[in-house]
Amino acid sequence: MTSDTSKLGFYLLLAPIFLWLVLLIILPHIGLFMVSISEKIGPREYQTGFGNYATFFGEPLYWRTFARTAIMSILATALTLILGFPIAYYIAKLTRGRTKTTLFLMCMIPFWVSELVRTFGWMILLRETGVISTTLQSLGLISGPVELLYNDAAIMVGLVYTSILFMIVPLVTTLDSLDDSLIEAGYDLGGTTTSIMREIVIPHAMPGIVSGCIVVFMLSLGNYLTPILLGGKDSLWFTGMIYTQFITRFNWEFGSALGFLLLALSSAIVFLGLKMSRQSLSDTMGRT
């Protein structure tokens, strides 16, 4: 390992990852922060200060949207976990061989398709002239067309749909590794379904639950398409606000501040999630 050629080989291997991480991840985020703390005082004239952040906290629309995005994302994460866990458990523990593979693939196929296509599907289903409204009318359950799109429930349906696979995959992986005999032992010792779930299955699945929740939360928080298309113009999603500042208003300084706040929130949640479950990022993310 100490010969010159292997040293050279080592540096050759180190170069690409170094360039990638420094030029595309680290420096841009430092740059983002630098821009976010510069205030425009005239054409091409800037001074350093936290004015952009002050604007954010001073204007209720901004921080309320921020809070709303966070709360909706947490809600979406919780829903995804509640809806996804039984499915993951079913795939991992109640099916074998070919059935298992088929069900797993059926879960995965929708997620290889662009998010845009999936959201488009929900629009066709939910809108006023859409499939569900028309079906309900022809069944005589409602008298006129109903608009199911452009509300928070529609956003929630879309968010859960978009991210549920990222909950199911880590859950299936961890539940698969739970030996059936542990569940049998729990029963043998007098456990009930509830107590075995609480004491054996869920503690075992905790790494999967944490990594699933982290990924789903981040995907929801950073989602742009679903809230915009299913929630309409007034969906008040934080990424939409960042987009407006950057592309429509061309106020990059304020946009950067918003972006940095979003990054801070998502990092904080990831950090908290890992701390609470005593896991490391490598263990949690490396398993995908």
């Binding site: 991840i25 985020h29 740059g31 950073g222 987009y243 950057f246 972006g259 979003l262 998502s266 993310m285």
Partner: peptide, 26 residues
């Protein structure tokens, strides 16, 4: 380095986009 390598997974896509946009424009 391994942890840094995993970072892009937990950075929202929009943020990744604007940070590169801001950096390259600067």
């Amino acid at each position: 380095l391994y942890m840094l390598m995993l970072l892009p997974l937990i950075i929202p896509g929009v943020i990744l986009g604007i940070s590169i946009l801001v950096f390259s424009s600067t």
